[in-house]
Write a protein that binds this DNA or RNA. Structure first.
Length: 985
DNA sequence: GCATCATCTTA
DNA sequence: GTAAGATGATGCG
């Protein structure tokens, strides 16, 4: 049933492609002759990008009112493809308005499509000119659709020995996929190869036409067979292969599908014709014309004219950049894919760091940016702020480290394209404006009531930082989260993070580039870089003012965009305002509070470690027969495996010997024992005892970490300067470090941690009966697992069996493979696989969870946490198998780790609300644990309070914020109290 | 001076 | 097998 649509209305001329048969199906072509080492032939479905970007991107307009979002979106897709593949052959194909043979075949064909918006149709001529100016062949054929042109070219390209990338998001194109033809959606980043088609549609590419024929396509007006949907079509094709075969075996076919098939068999040929992409069009074009014009000068004038007419400023600037794809990118000839990847990385890097050469010129004088240098101007700003529902505030300081930063100036914005900068402490010698600066204390005391007014919303980029700075000047931007209706109206960094945590950078410059297509003035532009960088108070006030005003202006514009996005997404709105922003306020308090450390004790430890290290070094030199750097893996590897002739040396990817703990501990050699002990002590001394002493406040002896709230891909926090989330606990010596974390006189350390929270989440998400029961009965989960899998009672489980079960339980959370488990348990891969099979046999729903999660990541491109946070999985369709598999494991882990992160953030909010602040302070968060210092005589009561708040959080705080979670197992919190963190844990 | 690698610490 | 950050060594400019 894969007859090709062959119609006299089509411009078909068999003479142009004489060697090809008319029965041409790309998916079944012989591809043995195709050379994959050359760049692929790129076929772009221009119509797809036109529609997709028009509807998906925010409206953009030139000053003359010309809409440009589809032009820009499509252009970006083209540039991305050129940078990625460095193609020598490429074509962009568009539909025409003329009816096609499909319209003549069926009155319903695409009949339900509304007419094109004028704002879109206006953009088409520009786009055509742009494609041509980029030197890319443009194909439009009356009576044919872009799909048919692409089908024809794909067929021809493969016949000629090219491999092909079809750039589209149209699922119908899946019928063209084979092992040399893939689909790539440059808008979503999704790549679909043969396996991808199987994963997505449950059938092979060569069955795609039959699949569409059976199922129909309502958006195209193809009816399909009534009563046969996706699932039935899949089942039938998997069983019978083709429609022909299904019809021949109609008697065997079960269910209501059979009857419908018999009744509508007559419609099948028509539907098939409509669904089949033509592969033998007369494209009326010389094959040799489909090469990119790689002459950099050929069209540059036209390109310049277009960019300037469309007001594409960055593109215009990049035309003069040597890495613009239009600048002869293909002239270097065939690039191997490795080189292409490197080249692309370089281009991305250089594009990101494209600098504005002259700061003064960068100021856009349409914008009303003001420097406040006199009291009347300041009075008028005050009035404006007082009468605003919300405004942007941004602080400029002498340092990025909040602990040591001094306030240099403040900027404000109450609407887009207007901003104010109040310089307060600039001190550049020779800058005449410095003497005109207003008095800092006067200004701050006037601003204080406004900044502390909970009814005026504050907007900012990374407001936690500004809140820290202002608190140093006795201004409480935080308010308190219990009774503030409108404080901290928006943090644009957190908004971006809630919308997509997979983005690695949420800095203002990155957001401006991404959401506003604006290259902001970078800090390096105004303050220099490297050793020559000066602090902001040394920047001239007029330059500083532009920079600061732009920050406030951009933040306001981002606020508008995010507000719009969040208005359409109730859950993201809640995640931002009910979860992330309240968490940020609490983190701010925790960071400011800090935790007390016992400095003399740490110094004593340092000294002790140092003495032992010196002894170990000497012994190592004796064993080795010469001195070498024990801390150098390279020198150690050479010493051990080359000079001393120890066998069992493995190499790392860079070719040097691997000397990790896992390798060394298998080797029986005196030097190895020395090295392992040396490393352990050196680690503790360098990373912990010395480092903590260095960063502790010299007066209060408290350590203040910084929590990063918009960094991880799962929603977890991270901790830096110092990292207090990886303080040792496993070894006795390591725990000495923990003993240095103490509470002041009269107080104790209280630690409260969620027990097995991720496994409980696995029980919840999978609904697995056995797992749920174990938690509901309060069993030791690893023992229970071992007993279940081995068919024993819990009393019969041996320590080794429990250990293996624990490894498999952790493996589950990490998206386990037999390979990984085998490595962990030091057994063969087969044994590990047997173990996994036994496990899944007893926990079938857990297996299902893993399958379903993978499938959901493929289908939707994201997975979700318990509070509905969307965690995107961009690499899930990566063409590199290793990358793809890693993305699958991450997708399985993300809902578990991310939900645990959601829950502990809720817990922090819940606890903060009930904690008696005079008697207790929340100090640290370590993923599933909260650490407090509390009055010793109140510790028992407060402990109960905290435990209760944490355990009940899903039925209290979550519900109050509008999340309904019916959790399958109890949340268990274990608390303990001690004079130091080690005792409390 | 800066980036990358190998190693080791945590949940 | 997931998610992080800090350190010293090494190599490049």
């Amino acid at each position: 049933m894969t007859d090709n649509a062959h119609n006299s209305h089509l411009p078909i001329n068999p003479d142009t492609v004489p060697s090809f048969e008319t029965m041409t199906n790309v998916a079944t072509m012989d591809t043995s002759h195709v050379n994959k080492d050359t760049p692929p032939f790129i076929l772009v479905d221009g119509s797809y990008y036109l529609f997709r970007t028009y509807h998906a991107l925010p409206k953009m307009m030139t000053t003359t009112g010309q809409h440009t979002n589809a032009i820009r979106g499509t252009l970006n897709a083209l540039l991305k493809l050129m940078r990625r593949y460095h193609p020598t052959h490429m074509a962009v194909c568009f539909d025409t308005r003329a009816p096609t043979f499909r319209h003549q075949l069926s009155a319903d064909y695409k009949a339900s499509r509304p007419p094109m918006d004028i704002e879109l149709s206006q953009q088409i001529p520009y786009l055509h000119r742009l494609v041509t100016a980029l030197g890319i062949p443009l194909l439009r054929i009356e009576g044919a659709e872009a799909d048919d042109i692409i089908g024809t070219l794909a067929y021809r390209a493969v016949a000629e020995g090219h491999h092909v990338v079809i750039s589209t998001g149209d699922k119908d194109m899946a019928q063209l996929v084979n092992d040399c033809v893939i689909l790539e959606d440059s808008f979503t980043g999704k790549i679909t190869d043969s396996q991808g088609v199987v994963d997505k549609f449950g059938i092979n590419p060569e069955q795609m036409i039959d699949f569409l024929t059976l199922m129909g396509d309502s958006s195209d007006g193809i009816k399909g067979v009534p009563g046969i949907g996706k699932k039935t079509a899949q089942d039938l094709l998997n069983k019978y292969g083709t429609i022909d075969n299904i019809l021949q075996n109609l008697a065997d076919v079960k269910g209501r599908g059979a009857k419908s098939l018999a009744e509508h068999a007559g419609d099948i040929p028509l539907n098939a014709q409509l669904a089949t992409i033509v592969t033998d069009l007369d494209i009326g074009q010389d094959w040799s014309d489909l090469q990119l014009n790689t002459d950099p000068c050929a069209h540059v004038d036209e390109l310049r004219a277009l960019y300037s007419e469309l007001e594409f400023k960055n593109e215009l600037a990049s035309l003069d950049h040597p890495n613009h794809p239009a600048n002869g990118q293909g002239s270097k000839g065939v690039a191997a894919s490795q080189a292409a990847t490197e080249a692309q990385a370089q281009i991305e890097k250089s594009l990101q760091s494209t600098k504005i050469d002259n700061i003064k010129n960068s100021k856009n004088h349409d914008k009303a940016w003001h420097t406040i240098l006199d009291m009347p101007a300041f009075d008028s700003l005050i009035e404006q702020l007082e009468n605003s529902a919300h405004f942007v505030i941004d602080t400029e300081t002498t340092s990025v480290h909040w602990r040591q930063a001094e306030l240099v100036g403040l900027s404000f914005a109450t609407q887009a394209h207007e901003a104010y900068y109040i310089p307060l402490a600039h001190s550049l010698e020779g800058d005449a404006l410095t003497t005109k600066q207003l008095d800092r204390d006067t200004i701050l005391s006037r601003l204080k009531p406004i900044l502390e007014n909970p009814n005026i919303g504050k907007i900012g980029q990374h407001l936690k930082y500004d809140a820290h700075i202002l608190s140093r000047y006795d201004i409480d931007l935080l308010g308190s989260i219990h009774d503030k209706p409108n404080n901290w109206a928006m943090d644009t960094m957190l908004a971006s993070y809630v919308i997509n945590a997979a983005i690695t950078r949420h800095g203002m410059d990155d957001l401006a580039r991404h959401y506003l297509q604006t290259q902001t003035i970078s800090f390096e532009d105004v303050a220099g870089k490297g050793a020559k960088q000066v602090s902001f108070d040394q920047v001239a006030i007029d330059i500083a003012s532009d920079y600061a005003c732009e920050d406030a202006d951009i933040t306001y514009q981002l606020f508008k965009i995010f507000n719009q996005k969040l208005a359409n997404d109730d859950n993201n709105q809640k995640l931002l305002h009910e979860l992330e922003i309240p968490t940020a306020e609490i983190l701010c308090q925790m960071e400011a509070e800090g935790i007390l450390i016992k400095r003399p004790f740490l110094n004593e430890l340092s000294k002790r470690f140092d003495e032992e290290i010196i002894v170990l070094e000497q012994r190592a030199y004796e064993v080795a027969g010469e001195e070498f750097n024990l801390a150098s893996p390279k020198q150690l590897g050479e010493m051990l495996f080359d000079k001393l002739g120890v066998i069992g040396g493995k190499k790392t990817k860079t070719g040097q010997y691997s000397t990790g703990e896992a390798v060394l501990s298998k080797i029986d050699h005196p030097l190895v024992d020395i090295v392992l002990e040396y490393r352990s002590l050196a680690k503790l001394k360098n990373t912990y005892t010395d480092a903590l002493d260095n960063v502790a406040d010299p007066i209060t002896n408290r350590v203040h970490t910084s929590y990063h709230q918009a960094l991880t891909s799962t929603g977890r926090l991270s901790s830096t300067d110092p990292n207090l989330q990886n303080i040792p606990i496993r070894t006795a010596t390591g725990r000495l470090i923990r003993q240095a974390f103490i509470a002041p006189e009269g107080r104790v350390i209280l630690a409260a941690d969620y027990s097995q929270i991720e496994l409980r989440l696995m029980a919840h998400f999978s609904g697995d009966e056995n797992l749920t029961r174990a938690f509901n009965e309060g069993l030791d989960i690893h023992t229970a697992t071992a007993a279940e899998v081995l068919g024993k009672t819990v009393e019969e489980v041996t320590p080794t069996e429990r250990r293996n079960a624990k490894a498999i339980n952790f493996g589950l959370l990490y998206g386990m493979s037999a390979f990984g488990l085998a490595k962990q348990l030091q057994m063969s891969r087969g044994e590990a696989q047997d173990y996994i099979n036994m496990y899944f046999n007893r926990y079938p729903s857990v297996k299902e969870y893993m399958i379903n999660t993978r499938a959901s990541a493929y289908d939707k491109g994201y997975v979700e946490t318990i509070l509905g946070r969307k965690l995107y999985t961009p690499d899930i369709n990566n063409s590199n198998r290793m990358v793809k598999q890693a993305a699958e494991r991450a997708a399985i882990n993300a809902p578990l780790q991310g939900s645990a992160a959601d829950i502990i953030k809720l817990a922090m909010i819940a606890v903060d609300k009930v904690l008696p602040k005079a008697q207790a302070k929340m100090l640290l968060q370590v993923h599933d644990e909260l650490v407090f210092e509390v009055d010793a005589d109140k510790a028992a009561d407060i402990s109960k309070l905290i435990k209760n708040a944490m355990q009940e959080v899903l039925s209290t705080t979550a519900v109050a914020s509008g999340w309904q979670v019916d959790f399958a197992v109890p949340l268990l919190v274990e608390t303990d109290i001690g004079s130091n963190w080690d005792e409390a844990h």
